[in-house]
Amino acid sequence: MKCWLWGLVCGTPLMLGDVLATYRLNAQSFAQSRNNGQPPTRTLNPEKSQCTRRLLDLVFIIDSSRSIRISDFEKVKTFLALMVDTLAVGSDATRVAVVNYASTVKIEFLLKDHFNKPDMKKAISRIEPLAAGTMTGMAIKTAVNEAFTEESGARPHSRNIAKVAIIVTDGRPQDHVEQISAAARADGIEIYAVGVDRADMASLKQMASLPLEDHVFYVETYGVIEKLTSKFRETLCGLDPCATGNDCEHICVNNIDSYYCKCRTGYILNADRKTCSQKQVRGEVVVDPCKCEARLAFQKQTQVVLQQLTTTPLADFARRIWRLEEALGRA
């Protein structure tokens, strides 16, 4: 009898383990049924990738000084062409101009020159580097005085159409940019500064609009400058990757050209980084990453039983067993 009674007590954890294993199997099936009921993932509509919600008078100011190799300058032109692809170009939509500079400044085409993408991209493909120095300040001043004027195709200030300049350079300006850039910003021009390779970060900050973290960009080589296209599409057009397509169960967080998922208060992110499970704060029960309510309920019940066993005085427990054995011996 003693062996039978003690075996019952000692074997309890083993039985609990078997039951828990059964619950795990049921829990997996339950989780799969829950996941199969999830709504389908939304896909990005290519038509929505174009900038249609914000009209711009956009002027690119590109550095073609002697420090830029021909192959790298071709990558800059590719970047411009990709940017054009993301825009809704037209006389009543976004207008684009390009200012090319080195020691001299050349306006490649004005805001009024091209109102369709094929013509604009052909004009970009014909741009040649100017070589020599890096007169960035002169280029900005030329853009303000000649490219952003109504005579050149810019819309009147009364229409509240954003005027944006994107400067791409890999060096240090050989003239003063701080005051010229400040005057351009005071005139209502929003300036983005893109630095490549050996670009001077201090100069980029002097040129760019505030906040600097949204208007100053840096890439190590011209080979990766194309990656900025999606960032500018989002920034200039107001496009949000979370709005164009995501599969977050609770909260989508914009992360430049991508996104990540978060959970509401009281929930934690599951291993799939998309769905959320409710936090469990009682005792030592942890959240179930596969959303298995049956398993959580069993864990809670098991914990209550174990807590009762550990809180019962050992002497009282032994006394009950002795009385039971004595009663059985007299029987």
Rank of each mutant, 00 (worst) to 15 (best):
D85S: 11
D85T: 06
D85P: 05
A88H: 12
K77E: 02
T78Y: 06
F79L: 08
L87M: 15
V96A: 04
T94R: 03
T78L: 14
Y101H: 01
K75C: 04
D92S: 13
K75G: 01
A102M: 11
V99H: 11
L80K: 05
T104L: 09
N100G: 06
N100M: 10
E74P: 01
E74Y: 05
M83I: 14
T94S: 15
T94F: 05
Y101K: 00
A81V: 09
M83Q: 15
E74L: 10
V99N: 11
D85E: 13
V98C: 11
A81Y: 02
K77Y: 03
Y101R: 00
L87N: 00
K75D: 04
K77Q: 12
F73S: 01
L87F: 02
V99C: 12
T94V: 07
S91V: 09
T104N: 12
V76L: 12
T86S: 15
V84I: 13
A88I: 00
L82W: 08
F79G: 03
R95G: 07
L82D: 14
A88P: 00
T86R: 15
G90I: 06
D85Q: 10
V76T: 14
D72H: 03
Y101F: 15
T78G: 07
R95A: 08
L82H: 13
L80H: 05
V98K: 07
V84T: 12
K77T: 03
A88T: 07
T94G: 05
E74G: 02
A93C: 11
T78N: 12
V96R: 01
A81W: 02
N100P: 06
D92Y: 08
Y101C: 00
A81M: 14
A102Y: 04
D85V: 07
F79Q: 05
V84R: 02
V89R: 00
V89I: 15
A93W: 10
Y101Q: 01
Y101S: 00
V89S: 00
A97M: 08
T86I: 12
A102G: 15
K75S: 07
F79S: 04
L80C: 06
L82C: 09
T94M: 08
L87D: 02
G90K: 08
Y101V: 00
D92V: 09
V99E: 10
V76P: 01
T86P: 07
E74I: 09
K77S: 03
V84D: 01
V99I: 12
T78S: 13
G90L: 06
A102Q: 05
T78M: 09
N100V: 12
V99G: 11
V99F: 11
A81P: 01
N100R: 10
N100E: 15
V84L: 09
A102E: 05
K77R: 15
A93F: 11
L82P: 00
S91F: 11
F73A: 02
A93H: 13
D85R: 07
L82N: 14
A81G: 12
V96C: 04
D85M: 08
T86C: 12
L80D: 03
G90M: 06
L87G: 01
L87P: 00
M83N: 14
A88C: 12
N100Q: 15
F79M: 08
A93T: 10
E74S: 14
K75Q: 15
A102K: 03
K77C: 03
V84W: 03
R95V: 10
